[in-house]
Computed example of a mutant assay.
Amino acid sequence: MAKNKKPKILTVETAAKSKLFTIESLDLEFSNGVKRTYERMRRSGREAVMMVPITENGDLLLVREYAAGTEEYELGFPKGLVDLGETPEDAANRELKEEIGLGGTTFIPLKKVVLAPSYFSSEMTLFLVEGLYPETLEGDEPEPLEVIRWPFNQSDELLSHMDFSEARSIAALMLAQRYLAKNTLSNKTD
């Protein structure tokens, strides 16, 4: 498969700016001579993390949190930004303590994902977290998050649950299912 030559960036200008986002307008010229203008969110320089915490009893821990984009309470896995000087694992542990009142001892990276790469460049590392222990840190959420326990052996039903619709949470769950199935199978054959 031939690799495409990246388009030439002719200009980059700020199209709009808010407290959280800067939208850039890019004038591009593709290798075939076609010129187009694209818009994207400027890189923030910060990564994010999402965790799939699983208890010793085999329960997934999720949070129900208000999402301004959908104007609904959404069910998903704990997540947050990586602070300056933190590793993704450090950020994942901090966010767990802030959002569900538990830390973890084992952080298994499942995959690094990008949301809407045509418009964003932000990366999120998805982790499976085991070895949970009680520890709470104060977070930045405007209200306490509802923690939901969901039996892992019923995780297929979670995939079709009406409130569980965030693509990153769905991807994280499917990757966790695959990881756990593979490692449970290999542990049985060892």
Rank of each mutant, 00 (worst) to 15 (best):
S121F: 07
D90L: 03
K97Y: 04
E123D: 07
P109H: 12
G103S: 09
K97R: 14
P144T: 00
N93Q: 10
S121T: 13
I100V: 11
E130Y: 11
A116L: 11
T106S: 08
L81I: 07
L110T: 09
L137Y: 15
P117K: 12
F120V: 00
E123V: 14
L115D: 12
P134R: 15
P109I: 12
P88N: 14
P134A: 03
L137W: 15
L96R: 02
G131S: 15
Y119I: 06
A92L: 03
K111Y: 15
A91W: 00
D140R: 09
P88G: 07
R94M: 08
P88E: 08
L128R: 02
T106K: 12
L115F: 12
N93W: 03
A91N: 01
Y119R: 15
E130R: 14
P134H: 15
E86K: 06
E98K: 10
P144F: 03
Y133E: 13
Y119V: 03
L137T: 15
L132F: 04
E135V: 13
T125D: 06
T106Y: 13
G101Y: 00
L115I: 10
P117R: 12
F127L: 15
P144N: 02
T125A: 04
E123W: 10
P142S: 09
L96V: 06
L84K: 14
T105S: 10
A92T: 05
L128Q: 03
V114M: 08
L126Q: 01
L81P: 09
V114C: 13
A91Q: 01
V129P: 02
I108L: 09
P142L: 06
S118F: 11
L110S: 08
S122P: 11
F120I: 00
D140H: 13
G85M: 10
G101M: 08
F120C: 00
L84E: 15
L115R: 15
P117T: 13
E141T: 07
I108E: 03
P117V: 13
S118D: 12
G104Q: 05
E99A: 08
E143N: 11
S121Y: 07
E141V: 04
G101S: 11
D140G: 07
D140P: 08
K112L: 10
L128V: 09
L128A: 02
K112S: 14
Y119W: 10
P134G: 04
L84G: 11
G80K: 01
V114A: 06
L128I: 09
G85Y: 06
I100Y: 01
Y119T: 11
V129C: 10
Y119C: 07
L84A: 11
E130K: 14
F127Y: 12
M124R: 14
Y119Q: 15
P109Q: 10
E123H: 15
P134T: 05
D90A: 02
G104E: 06
G131H: 05
G104H: 03
L84S: 13
I100E: 05
M124F: 09
E123L: 14
Y119S: 03
G104M: 07
P142H: 10
G85S: 08
L115G: 10
L126K: 04
P117M: 10
P142N: 14
D90P: 05
